[in-house]
Write a protein that binds this DNA or RNA. Structure first.
Lengths: 192, 192
DNA sequence: CGAGCGCTTGATTGAGTTCAAAAATCGTGG
DNA sequence: CCACGATTTTTGAACTCAATCAAGCGCTCG
């Protein structure tokens, strides 16, 4: 059976004793369909590797509606990277759509294997993780929020950029037409 | 002035001579507003680090409309990771929104610095890059394609998952209501 | 066997698009 | 530095795609 370790470490190169030490920090778990592994507002410290079965991650918006961020079948990893990165309470729920067998692990596994922060290579990986976190947030906005909220989010997240580009560009980034953005901004301003 | 190197290598730890060798493969370039650095269908081999100015990446859909995937101000990196990962022709254009000063580099920089494929740590990084590439594709679909095309894309990309989850879940993943998906599928099937 | 869930279908509503045209802003050459 | 042309932004009307609300059917699993 495949393990997360087979995926982190490439071929050879990592000493057996280190691998064994890492393996001891990984916890194998059987989860029943419907079981919740991570709830909103919990601190996301652990990630889940799926050996067998199917997990999903999703958010619940302010109207109580579910929006699935990702499915995770065999050999996939699920986690709230954004929450882990920024050390903020998680926005995602993670649960099991089928009875599953998973491996539970946290950042320390990567550190022990030298993937993260081992010898100066950390900053590049940090950057990749931050990128993923940004993309995750954007997808969540796109599937769950109406145009006006996406605009407000953009306003807050990129105050510097908003000054430097045309509205046409911002609209294009948000996935709406310039006309729609103009109208949204009109109403929005009027209401303040 | 900050360089991409300051970001890849963390603090200390990488020998000076290796850093210098890496630095020699990085090319500093002045680009004028409007200049195009990467075109659709080119093979994306290089990435761009912005020292000063503003770049963007975007696609042009089949109706000729631009959709901005990302802005890249100072200290950001732009590249078509999906294209680089899968070695496919790029879907993204990259151009300059302001006169900018950038650093041009390719994968070899990471390899030389031991971030990628140096000593077995590669597989973990590969996984992160693949994740980014998946997220990139999904965002592009969300901002540029109507619901039916997003569904068809999903059908092709995750044929295994489609069998195992309810349509309600798929709709939730696509960012539409179950009713809308049902209707879309109805028409779609009828037309075949 | 019944209750609930999932899927479909229909009617209505609403957010955002498209098309068009006017007003405002920007950039450039004279 | 001004003026002109081009682009951007705004506004309006008609339209379209998808959301909402509601009802009905079929299935399963408890």
């Amino acid at each position: 059976m495949k393990s997360i370790l087979d995926n982190i470490i490439g071929h050879g190169k990592v000493p057996d004793d280190i691998i064994e030490k890492a393996r001891s920090t990984i916890q194998v778990k059987q989860v029943a369909k419907g079981e919740i592994l991570l709830r909103e507002n919990e601190k996301a410290t652990r990630s889940f590797y799926v050996r067998k079965g199917l997990l999903r991650s999703y958010i619940i918006d302010n109207k109580g509606k579910e929006h699935i961020f990702s499915f995770a079948p065999e050999d996939w990893i699920v986690s709230d990277i954004a929450s882990q990165m920024q050390n903020t309470p998680s926005r995602l729920f993670i649960d099991a759509l089928e009875d599953s067998e998973i491996e539970v692990f946290d950042r320390s596994v990567f550190e022990e294997l030298g993937v993260v922060s081992a010898n100066g290579s950390s900053a590049g990986v940090q950057r990749l993780l931050r990128r993923i976190s940004v993309l995750q947030d954007r997808i969540i906005m796109l599937i769950s929020a109406p145009a006006i909220e996406r605009y407000q989010e953009f306003e807050n997240t990129y105050p510097d950029i908003i000054q430097r580009v045309t509205q046409k560009m911002i609209a294009s980034y948000l996935g709406i037409t310039p006309e729609a953005l103009s109208k949204i901004r009109g109403e929005y301003a009027r209401k303040k």
